[in-house]
Design a protein around this nucleic acid. Sequence first.
DNA 1: CGCATTTGACCAGCGC
DNA 2: GCGCTGGTCAAATGCG
Length: 493
Amino acid sequence: MDTPPPPPPPTIQFSVNLNCAAPENPNERVIDEMDFFSDKKGDGGGGSGGGGEPTSDDDATGGANRTVLMSGQSSLLDFNINTSLHLLTAANSNQSTVDDGISSNSDHRRLENELRIMKTKLEKANLENQHLREMLKQATNDYHGLQMQMQTLKQQQQQQQQEQQNNHQNIEERQNRHENIVAPRQFMDLGLAVGATDGIVDDPDKEIGRGDDLSPENRVSRVGANSSRSVDQATEATIRKARVSVRARSEASMITDGCQWRKYGQKMAKGNPCPRAYYRCTMAAGCPVRKQVQRCADDRGILITTYEGNHNHPLPPAAMAMASTTSSAARMLLSGSMPSTDGIINSNFLARTLLPCSSSMATISASAPFPTVTLDLTQTPNPLQFPRPPNNFTIPFPNPQQNLDSANNSVAALLPQIFGQALYNQSKFSGLQMSQEMDQNQLNNPANALATDPNVTAALAAAISSMLGGSFPNNGINNTTNGNNNGNDNNNM
DNA sequence: CGCATTTGACCAGCGC
DNA sequence: GCGCTGGTCAAATGCG
Ligand SMILES: [Zn+2]
């Protein structure tokens, strides 16, 4: 779901929370934010039982007063019954009694002052809550998208089983049906996530510029002056388009990702004897998704596939994996690199988010013109033996076995969830759930905290590697390109 | 014959 | 302004 007003970048949220929490009451305020979302939890960080249990009195004063109450003075509840504003005075009654003898006017002024301060704080808190709500909404949407994908996989599996039982036809027929089973439109909300981030820069370009430029009818007048406008828009959109490149060992000419690709160009890259092939998604007429396939100059066994753009059409489950992976990764990139001052910091942060364990496995380059996420899977000789660390986060697979059952999708289907987890982790540091799971040390160094959790990287590597390795022998799904563009033919310069 | 690939040419951005 | 490079187009070619 691309929200026209760009959702507040998580990283910014993180800093905001730090600013609010650090100076005075680090824990209570954050906890209270969490409390705002989950109405059930009355106790803050440690409280088991009574502490912050919302009472009927609490309802009368509203959530704002609860903020004050959470600061440790629950005994003041009685005073709050009269007026909500008196809570503030009551909270500082101890100090005010000291000054009592001086003048009641100054006391009054001070009270007003504090009232003002509290009001501003309240507004701030409300604003923050709003932001967090938006983030929560987005996370929920992502979750729903994944659920839809899960359902699709289930349905597909059931259909396949039925087909196997009813008629033991040849495999080709089944694969044709496999193509026809497209993902529900809802998933496109996930897939188009980058589109939302694109909207930060220039919204209509992606659809109008790209779409027009790619439609065959409009290509006729490409050289003409009338097309210059759309071309400009398209290039502008391209400038900030994030890319996701996957490095993996493969002898095939192209990795199988479930999409239909049509080769539209081949160039000799600078400093690489192997040509670079350009592919375009042909599953829909105006689909803007492209990918580049190139062999590594040093080791021709390494295939570098770079994805760009988002599908504007429903996808078969097998293709959804990679599509949502790339879009999620791209969204991570763009959401982090958007603010100008934080760009560098965020890119580093994102790099460590994606790559907690080993720096050699994935890198994030936010440098111009394209921010790129690179997943280097060449270091994992046997992905299936990847150790599964038992701690910390549990990647929210709805039902992993279902995924593994269907041959084609198998591990590839895990990709979006894994990346979704990465996003989830990122949002964690933005303040969503920080208070409950992070201690102070981790608060100071969130990237390190993430780095201690190798689940993301491990699962990601295993998924992609397995996909690469497993899909080639016979599971070639929809790819129409065959592998005869191997290194030697140097065509273009 | 239709479709995908090949491949030379074209275009735009960027650095000098 | 010029050359280099990446990316794209589209006519030519190949294939089933
Ligand atoms: Zn597509």
